[in-house]
Nucleic acid binder design. Structure first.
Lengths: 128, 128
DNA sequence: ATAGTGGTTCCAGTAAGGGGAAGGTCAAGG
DNA sequence: CCTTGACCTTCCCCTTACTGGAACCACTAT
């Protein structure tokens, strides 16, 4: 599978995919013509990367998560430990998003959608 | 209020706060000694930036959201429109995080935490 | 054969900061 | 009064995670 298809299916640009190869996140094979030859497994990894990056996980977070996916000889105790750390991070993110969601949707509700300039966004956005 | 306090309260580093001033996200006053003098309102903005950035919103997303907060002459119709776009983004993020959470917590559950190398993470992580 | 599309590498630039130097400022203690 | 230490300032370069563009090679189609 060529990089164009992979780009389409994973949601990453070809540029980004090449970059991810550079830094060792994926290691596609090569065809005799020099083209990268991706397999299904690579698509899954890249799709995951696409999502995780959009959610604010760093490349190194992603590397840790992919290592779980990758390492055939892993001990499940390690997997469990790493996964738990990431789970905690995810839960924090969900909570923060939830708070932002509440604030914004409250705002949307309160805002009559008219031309008055007194939307109550101010009180909620950055509450400590 | 000096930058150190603001850093502590907002969760951003002093460096980042100065950078945000550079790019026009905040405009603290200055004391006669040249120190930045922040007000409560600035803390709220910075706290919000801290959270939003950690969740993968771009600076430009944040700028749009802060514009709502900032613009005293805004029409609530505009506010509502922008807020709705952001709400949709947030909902997507929550859904994606939810999927990652399910996958990982499933993994944590399935993984006995022993030394067997067959953790079932593979099937879930990058499902298209 | 030639155009067009899509692949390759490489080099340079951007975004969003971080590290650290060189120096000014303030409060406390001797 | 002076110094010490913590905190502030600007400036410049470094890093991360890409993005754009040039120059060139490969496959397909007319």
């Amino acid at each position: 599978m060529n990089i164009g298809i992979v780009s389409e299916r994973s949601g990453l640009t070809a540029k980004t995919i090449r970059y991810y190869e550079d830094i060792g996140l994926v290691k596609p094979l090569r065809d005799s013509n020099g083209y990268r030859a991706f397999q299904e497994k690579e698509i899954h990894k890249l799709t995951f990367l696409s999502r995780a990056r959009a959610l604010g996980f760093t490349i190194e977070d992603c590397r840790a998560l992919l290592a779980l996916y990758e390492d055939e000889t892993r001990a499940s105790a390690d997997v469990k430990r790493i996964a738990k750390v990431q789970l905690a991070q995810i839960e924090e993110k969900v909570a923060a998003l939830g708070a932002m969601h509440d604030t914004l949707s409250h705002l949307v509700k309160e805002c009559a959608g008219d031309d008055r300039p007194d939307c109550p966004i101010l009180e909620g956005l950055g509450k400590v």
